[in-house]
Amino acid sequence: MADKLHATAPIGAEAISANGLRLALAPLAEAASLGAFAGSGRAELLACVRAEFGVDLPQTPKAVTTADGLVTFLWCGPSQWLALAPAEASGPSGASSGGQGLMARLRASCGAVCALSAQGDSRTALRLSGPGTRAVLSRLVPVDLHPRAFRAGDVALTLAGHIPVIVRHLDDQPEACELLVFRSFAASLFHDLHVAMTGHTS
């Protein structure tokens, strides 16, 4: 049997630190989009997800994570969600977390009431953390990031400079945000964030 194909990271550097901030790749094991079908599909999808994952799909731009921490659901539009299984969240079995399992669980639980599409390689997650995370992001992201307006769990589908992103506020202690970006843009976004962190144009 042939050797398995090996995975390549979307960007060369995995992490950089500057001025007390850290920018790092947050690899996804798996991700999938859920598009609710019309009619009663939406209510059924909510019920299916609640039954299988124990969480309610957010109805506004927010993220919700399952109690076991394995899967996060992000609001992505009026009838669309993104389910994320980060690589580092390791399941009780020690196996690769919600990954490998995520799409299978989704198909089994809600495949009949929504459109499911694999998105684990479509999106790259970059995590920016440390004091001043909001200030750095404000150089690229044109939405209100103030703690009164953008709290842990809040999500914004917007732009970072010229690049479409999904920004998710993770935590305030310490300050941390995640940016989901189309894989092909990841290197450019990494560069732009690096510049915003350090002030260097190179």
């Binding site: 989009s33 598009g35 019309a38 599909g41 669309q80 694999a118 390689d121 479509s122 189309f182």
Partner: peptide
């Protein structure tokens, strides 16, 4: 709007 159909870009998903 009465049509039941969903779209998502998979341009970046597949090499």
């Amino acid at each position: 709007p009465e049509m039941d159909v969903q779209f998502i870009s998979v341009t970046d998903e597949w090499a």
